[in-house]
Simulated assay, not measured.
Amino acid sequence: MSTIRDGGLFLLLSFLWGTSFMAIKLGVEFMPPVLFAAVRYDIAGILMLGYVAATTGEWRPRSRADWLTVLVGATLIIALYNAFLFIGQQGVTSGVGAILIGMNPILATGFSRVLLPQEQFGGIETVGLLFGFLGVGLVAFPESTSSLAADLIAPAFVLSAAGCVAFGSVAIQRIDSDIGTEGMVAWSTAVGALLLHVMSAGRPAESVADVTVTPVAIVSVVYLAVFASAVGYVIYFELLDRLGAIEINLVSYSVPVFATLSGWLVLDESLDTAAIAGFVVIFVGFLLLKQGLIRDRLSAGRETNPTDRS
């Protein structure tokens, strides 16, 4: 029963995070992108702080290291990640955006090899990293080269978003903090929302006067804040505890499926052959990067669940 439940939660998380790309595309039509992200995390921050306060013990930052962890998370994982993502989503389809964000586990592995001395980088892992970037090239490279630089701007913003969250997650591992993961994410969300408001106010292209309040805009904000963020992270933390980091990282490769389907159904978007091929190449890169951990996990599974051969 627990396997069925975990599988159901995994699919639900993939659905919530996948359809969030479509919701972003809808919302940026009615409000400036960074301000849109800020409002999303205003609501999500309040909900998540209330949740961790009610369910966990070590949720309040108490030391300088705790606050440094929150600041890194707020800046890189929430503010910069979402600012780049929401800006970039204006110029790419939901599916392409999700595929590029799927580079996060690969980029995080690369950053960890540089920032975490205990991590080792072998030949197979190097090939995996190269596969990841090859996949990005297939996804992001435009069919027409007549305006190559302009066509690559939006994918570059989305890939920068993936780089920010990957670098932030690795940087947090270097900080000796006692705050729990749920508390760190909740506080980072709240502080990140404030940073997003500052960034929005500093962008000449954004103004509150540009906000158009429509039912679609309201639904987009509520869906992203309540379901994709608050509910999504509750599911994520439960699965992380039950499945482990390797299995939960696979959500990065199921999310594009739901992003593409929802973009096709709601926004009449399509995904070209090169993007699909790039997605496959990125996933192969992930498997190569994690091949040692995957092999160890499979070996441990066989030892704990031996097959009856009698």
Rank of each mutant, 00 (worst) to 15 (best):
I179A: 00
F141S: 09
G163E: 07
I246M: 06
E119Y: 13
V257A: 05
V72R: 10
V136N: 05
L250V: 05
G163P: 07
S146I: 05
L13D: 10
G163F: 11
V72Q: 10
A201Q: 15
V216N: 02
P105V: 04
L80E: 02
L9Y: 13
T93D: 01
T260G: 04
E58N: 13
L47Q: 11
R203T: 08
G110F: 01
L267Y: 11
D296C: 12
S160I: 03
L243I: 06
L129C: 09
V39I: 15
R62G: 00
S207N: 12
I24N: 06
I77M: 15
A23T: 10
W187Y: 05
V170D: 12
G88S: 13
Y223A: 09
A205F: 12
L107V: 14
G122E: 11
V28Y: 13
F283W: 06
W59V: 07
S2L: 05
K25F: 11
G301E: 09
V266I: 15
V208H: 14
Q90Y: 10
A193T: 12
S220P: 06
L80N: 04
A201W: 15
S20I: 07
L49M: 05
I24G: 07
S144K: 01
L13F: 11
D151T: 02
F121T: 00
G95F: 00
I43Y: 13
L194N: 04
G45D: 03
L138D: 03
F258N: 00
L224A: 02
V127H: 01
V136F: 10
S94P: 00
L196Q: 14
A245I: 08
A228Q: 04
G202V: 14
L129V: 07
V165Y: 05
F121N: 01
L265E: 14
S160H: 01
F258T: 04
